[in-house]
Design a protein around this nucleic acid. Structure first.
Lengths: 192, 192
DNA sequence: GTCTATAAAATGATAGAC
DNA sequence: GTCTATCATTTTATAGAC
């Protein structure tokens, strides 16, 4: 009854790890094949090209973010609660798709068209949604009247790096990490 | 009287830009030479290898961070003021060495030994210094008793991304950007 | 200091046997 | 589905003329 994992998925999982560690161009099809215990030419029975592997990894995780943020935006909560939900969403994806996110972060510029344009659109839309949330919070006097872009990227850049350092906070479970980040990012570090 | 810029420096400046945009492995010596208006073989009159170019770019900017943080640590200020000075330092370097920092961030894993080990040591020491600052602030009750690693990477990951988005805050000069970041990161975004 | 020519190695991908 | 063998291309780097 357990869901079988196809060779194609196996390739994506291994590739995501290697691409994250060494970079897309630094990983040859021979390297990837060796990590899977087969020959490079055998890979082409499952995928069409090296580029297709990268595309599958990155677009899939990009869609997770897109779906997640839309669900939050369309919910009934207030803007500050939605911002907190965005932090939760980002942590959740970061912990469950670590390698794919690492691959996205390090290798998105190796995507070719039309996937590159597709990803850029998804990323811009995501950023714009968070920007609008921040603006709505400011209007409601729930956030300070600081520069919007500084606030936006303070939050986003921290969230985007979670996959890199979450292994250093292993005393915290997912829920606790979310709570700590919500507090740190929104309420600040300084004791009042 | 103006300081002459050598061809070797010109190569580093152009390479830093290209490496940041496309990635180290995606930029061939032909690409780099073309951007400089010469042939690839001519590059070797000024540098020994492609790897040397990367090393010069990254190690140089790494040393700026190392020198800067040591100056702060050895100053007479209290820990919270030192943390604020670290934010100022990071912004200053981010604005003045944008391409080199981009190159460091995207391509450090393409460094070969012993430069890679050298850079990792610099990075770890830098992180440890900021961690100790945060710990000292907590002990003084100037920072909340949140998870140290979460606080550390909230601050560091935002600072490390400044070069990517500082062009979107062009209404702010350097001093103002520093002030906004000190407020956002330390005091938080939420209105009390 | 730049050029042309070229070496030596690595790369993504295909053909065809099993 | 995997293999061996191979191709076409690109890569970093060197040698030597100007």
């Amino acid at each position: 009854m357990k869901s079988e994992i196809s060779r194609k998925e196996e390739i994506q999982i291994t590739a995501a790890k290697l691409f994250t560690e060494k970079g897309y161009n630094a990983v040859s099809m021979r390297d990837l094949a060796l990590a899977l215990g087969i020959k490079a030419s055998s890979l082409y029975n499952h995928i069409q090209s090296k580029q297709e592997i990268l595309s599958l990894i990155i677009i899939t995780v990009g869609e997770h973010f897109t779906e997640g943020i839309l669900e939050i935006i369309n919910s009934e909560s207030g803007p500050l609660e939605k911002l907190k939900q965005t932090i939760k969403l980002h942590v959740h994806i970061s912990l469950h798709y670590k390698d794919a996110i690492g691959c996205l972060n390090s290798n998105w510029h190796n995507l070719e068209e039309p996937d590159l344009a597709n990803l850029k659109k998804m990323r811009e839309d995501y950023e714009e949604n968070v920007r609008l949330l921040i603006r709505a919070c400011k209007k409601d006097k729930q956030l300070k009247s600081l520069n919007e872009e500084v606030m936006l990227y303070s939050v986003l850049s921290t969230l985007r790096s979670v996959y890199q350092w979450s292994n250093k906070t292993e005393g915290l479970n997912e829920e606790e990490l979310v709570a700590e980040l919500q507090e740190s990012l929104l309420e600040g570090l300084v004791e009042n």
